[in-house]
Amino acid sequence: MDTAVTAKKKWWDGGYSPFNVSYGKLMMWYFLISDAFTFGALLISYGTIRFSSTSWPDPNEVFRSFPGMGHANLPLVFVSLMTFILIMSSVTMVLAVHAGHMRDKKAVAKWLTWTIIGGACFLACQAWEWTHLYHEGAWWGRNPFHNVDGTLASTNFTNFFFTITGFHGLHVTSGVVLNIVILANVLKGTYEERGHYEMVEKVGLYWHFVDLVWVFVFTCFYLL
C-alpha cells in the first residue's frame, strides 16, 4: 500500500484506500461503531429507566464484597481490581501489536498470551461476582436490594445489571477466543509467511473496544 503521504495527496481520486487502512481494518472499525450503538442503546435504556424511577439501589451497598473477605464492607474495591485487570490486558495487547510491527514473532506470542491470561482473569472475577450476587438472592427477575430511600426496589436494577454486564462478558469471552485463535496462527507462523501481523491489529481493535465499553459500564453501574 502506498503510504508516502503528502499534504497534496488526493484521497478520493481512487487507486488507494481513502482511509489509508486495509479493507479488513476499516470493516473492523465499522463493526465496532455498530457494536457501540448496541451497547449505547442498552446503557441509555438503563439510564432512562433509572431517570424514570423515584429511587434506586445504592451501588456502594450492593457491590461491597471481596473474595475471601467475608462480610467486610469494601465498596468499589473488587470492581477496581477488575478494571485494573482489563486495562492491563489492553496494554499487553498494544505491546503485542507493537511487536507485530517489528515482526518479532516471539514477542507477539508472549504479549498475546498475557492478554489471554488477563481476559481469563477478568472473566473469573465476573463469574465470582455473579455467583456472589446470585447467592445473595439477585438474578434476572429477583432483586433483594432496597432503594436508597428504603422503599422496595423493582427488579429493573438486577435485570439491567445482569443483562449489560453479561453482554459485556460475552464480548470478553469472544475476545479471548479470538486471541487464542490468533495466538495459534502466530505460533504456526501464518503471519510470518503472510509478511505482516495485521490480524493482531484487527483483534487488538476489538479487544480495546471491550475495554472501552467496560469504562462506561464501570461508570454507569458502580460510580453513578
Binding site: W11, F19, N20, V21, W29, V94, H208, D211, L212
Partner: peptide, 16 residues
C-alpha cells in the same frame, strides 16, 4: 485515551 492511543485512531488520517 483508549481510542486515541490504544486503538491508534489519533494517528490515523482525518478521513478515518
Amino acid at each position: 485515551y483508549i481510542v486515541s492511543e490504544f486503538m491508534h485512531l489519533g494517528s490515523e488520517i482525518k478521513n478515518l
